[in-house]
Structures are given as structure tokens and as C-alpha cells.
Design a protein around this nucleic acid. Sequence first.
RNA 1: UGGGCCGUCGACUAAUGGUAGGUCAAGUGCCUUUGGAGCACUUUGUCUAGGUUCGAAUCCUAGCGGCCCAGCCA
Length: 576
Amino acid sequence: MNTSNPETETAAAPSPESRPSNFLRDAVLEDLKTNKFGGRVQTRFPPEPNGYLHIGHAKAICLDFGLAAEFGGHTNLRFDDTNPEKEETEYVDSIMQDVKWLGFEWSGLFYASDYFDQLYAWAVQLIKAGKAYVDDLSADQIRKYRGTLTEPGKDSPFRNRSIEENLDLFERMRAGEFPDGARVLRAKIDMASPNFNLRDPVMYRILHADHHRTGSKWCIYPLYDFAHGQSDSIEKVTHSMCTLEFEDHRPLYNWFIKELGIFPSQQYEFDRLNLTYTLLSKRKLLQLVRDGRVNGWDDPRMPTLSGLRRRGYTPEAIRNFCGAVGVSKTTGSIELAMLEHFVREDLNKRAPRAMAVLRPLKVVIDNYPEIQTEEMEAVNNPEDPSAGTRKVPFSRVLYIEQDDFREIPPPKYFRLSPGREVRLRYGYFVTCKSVVKDAKGEVIEVHCTYDPATRGGNNPPDGRKVKSTIHWVSAAHAVDAEVRLYENLFTKEDPNHTEEGQDFTVNLNPNSLEVLACCKVEPSLASPAPGSRYQFERLGYFCVDHDSAPGKPVFNRTVALKDTWAKVEKKTEKNK
RNA sequence: UGGGCCGUCGACUAAUGGUAGGUCAAGUGCCUUUGGAGCACUUUGUCUAGGUUCGAAUCCUAGCGGCCCAGCCA
């Protein structure tokens, strides 16, 4: 992989005054003021390698890396790999790639599994202190003993084993003497606590499974609660930020740190990102991949970073979005339109323009010389003069968009129709004189005349104006292309909202992918580099897919341009 | 139902006892060789009820509403 891709430039640390405040930043500021951590700010991004990163993780990444960078601190990438049954190196690799692509550099690369020996020693320490015990209850029995929301739990009959027996049993758990699920190690806290996390939480379970890094060395594995806080502590993380659902775990996080007497990292919680019309649950995303509802983790309809990348999103757009979204503790859902705004904003500045016709309609310019071809000069990016210009061939037979012609124009429709004159961008003014129809009465060919005084698409000397400019491709020079159009993967704002007994897959949008196989693009687009992005004039932003072959490009539509006409049309449709 | 957390324009988020502001969305106009982009303007908000205070989105009390927790997942 080319890691020096210029696009993955590192995200700059934002200047403090340019940043809107939020409660996390305020907390850091306060800690700096009181010198709580000796002026240090250190964070970590702790994904479990059990799936691909998505836009929700991007928010966490921007926060973890952004906050540390702002105050001159460091951020580690740490894989929370305590569950060998769900974790794979494929995920580790993709996560590293995605973090880099987003534009962040980690200081240290760690794995919770790096700490298994230390964690084991700490477990022994707690046993010796009478703070942990081996429980022989089954998973089912443990659940029953745990109590309910209103009733306290009951002590396990094994809760008061001797330290020696606990030590012996735990050692034998590690040695592989017992089958999966036979025993667990539990913290001895309080079975009557109103917080379930403190009702003697399980610290270790027996799992005879190979781990992606430690292989068969272990057959007991620590649980999240007995690994995360200590991992933070080992790395001397000062501000450990996680999502709201871990709020109830904070007392336990602190309990282990206190009982072990280790570096006191502080946990903070913020609201996870929710986006309308999209699902941000690794479990459900995995289900879509496994069931073939999408074409892999990097399907351009997926909210994964790899999917968004393939769709044409830029790291900068995603970072800007994450910054704009803010951070708080209120549970809410961001409108997808906000994400789309930030790609448009970024791509408008940087994407070269090109002309492409998605649904071609043949246009013949009757008074244009049959054998003639002209090279028209087109601006590559009106937002960026340094992008220069290019030549686009013009000739007698062209393709225009079917949408850009109406035999009977509706009100406020300004494009081509019989008798009407429009501008061909960078071409000429043309006037529609007649049409040719097929047996079904569909218009298959439009005949026009052009005005030689409008070369380049310029207004003629007589001051004549035209209400519309349309794009086109010269038929003789056109390159065939495939274009993939995407819509929301789900039809409901909240894909999880379903009738009783149904699951989220009923909300899948059957029209989320439309493949246009016979598109016509200008010759400069014959063999574009995969991953490069263009604005197709008047249509939207498109990204070259890696399915492309030389001379046979494939484009993914990132997002359409804002379409005022579509709005007008919709409105008049409604008023009918 | 026990516990934890949270309620500010349609969405997200600021205001840290002293002018309710920003972004997105929506709407209007200007401009335009993209019905793009840009520019200008506009609409809409402090969950409710009491209280403290010269002054409350902010503090207090009580309601109401939402989210999370009963994995040997993270």
C-alpha cells in the first residue's frame, strides 16, 4: 500500500480559539489548571478488532486524537482484543489503514493482549487481597443470582472460598484443567448494589480459543471491565473517553484502579454518533456483510470508513463533519444531510469538473459540418483557477442527458424543448428544430441548429440570452462508462424502528443501488486513476471505482449536486 | 420498577447568574456559461410548574419525557 498518499495528510491540530467549547475540552482545561496529571494530556483510541471502523468511530477518533493534539499530548492506538472468538487480524489491518487514512498518527501501537501477563498477576493480587474469587456457578445460575432491577442479588455459595483454594483453582483454570464455562473469576464487591456492574462482576472466563496474537498461550481471557481501565493505567492515559453506555461501568473502572493501587486514568463519557437513515452497529453491519445484503465492508453504501472512502468521501470532509457535529451527553441523531454538506463543501473546492452523460439522448446539429471536430476549451475547476483548462472535442452528433429535453416542457422548465434555445456548456447555443421518435413514440433523437457566433458557449453579439446551460459529450469521441448511483441503504430515518417481530432488514432500501451501464463520458475520463474524484457538471461528485479497467471506467456517485429544479418539480407535483 | 445519564430552533450544538448565538435543513432575493458554487436576508427554540435573585437556559424543588444497565460481548 502506498502510505505516502498525499491525501492522507495529517490532520492539523486546531488552534484552541477556533474550537467551539465542549464539556470534554472543559474537563481537560480544568485538569490542566489544577495540574491533576502534571500538565499531561494522553488519550487512546481503543477499538475491538471485530469489524471495520465506521463514521461513528471517526467521531471518537477525531475526539481522542484531536483533544490530545490540541494540548500537545499523545494518543495511542490500542486494540481491545480480549475476546478471541470475534477478533481477526483482517480487522486489525483495516483499522490501522482507516485511522491513517483519516489523517491521524498514533504514538504507541498496543494491544490489550500485550497486558495479559500483567492482568493475570493483578487478578492473583486481588485474590490474595480477598477481593476476588473463583465461582463454579453456571452462566445461567450466575444470572439468576444477580437479581433484577428491583431485587438485590444473592451471594454465590462459592463466594467465601479460602484464598488458597481460589489461588489453586484460578491457577488450574489457566492451566486448562476445566472446560469452557466451568468456572469464572469474579470480583468480590456487592451483590446488593443498585449498579449491576458492581454485583460481583466476572473478571475472567475460560475460553479454549486461539487468539489472533497470543495463539494458544491462554485459555482464560479477561473481560472488558478487567482489561480496559488497567490498560489505560499501564499506558498512563489521562483522559479515557468512551461512549455513554459505559457510564455505569465507571464505578467499576475506578474500583479496580483503586484496589490495585495503579495510575488513576479518568474515564469520561460522551454520546455516540447517530445518523439518520444509517445503522452504526458493528454487529448489524457484519450481518449485512455476512448475509450478502451489501457487497462487503467497503460497499459504497456502507457507513464504514472503507465504504465512504470507496464512495468518494475525503478524510477532510469527514473530519470537518465530526468537528461540526460537536460532542455532548444528549442522545440525538444527526441528519444525513449534514454529512453530505461537508463532502460537497470539500469536493467543490478540489474536484476537477468533467462532462458525463448518464442517460444519453442523441442530438444532431443539422447545420454543423459533418466531418468537423473542434477542440473547445473547458475550465477544470471554477473554484480553483490553478486547476487550469482542458480541451473537449465538439462535433455534429452529441449526447445530452435525457432529463435535459422535454417534448412538452412543464412550467419553469428551462432546458431544451422544441423551438427553444439553450447553451451547450463550452460549446454553442443550439435551438431544437425537430425530433425523431421510435415506434413507441419515445423521442430518440433531437435535431438542432447552432449559432456559430456563440462559440465556446459565449453570449452572441446581439445580446441574446438563454435561460439554461446543459452539458454534453461528443458521440464520436465519447467513452463508455459504468456509473453506480447510490441512495440511502435504509428507507427509514431510524432503521431500527420496526413493527413487532420484524428486524431492521425490513427497512433496507431495495433501490439503494442503481447501475447505469451505458453512460457516455468525455475522452479525458477514459482511464482515470482509481480513487480519483470528479464533479460531473450539473450532476454530482463521482469517484473512480477500483473495478475500473483502462478504457472502461466505473464511477461511484458520492453525492448529487443540490438540485433546485428537482425541488421545483416536486413542489409543483404536490400542488397538482 | 432500583440505579445512572440527559432535556435549548425541524436536526446538531454554544451561551459556565447578565444581549439566547453558530452550523445543517427550510424559505426569499441577488448573481451565474453548472437550476452548481457564492452572497444577502428571513422563519422557527430554553420540557412543565413553582421558587431563589435586581436579573435564571444556567441555581433549588416537584413533575413530565427520553436514553442506558439484569453477557462468561465490548
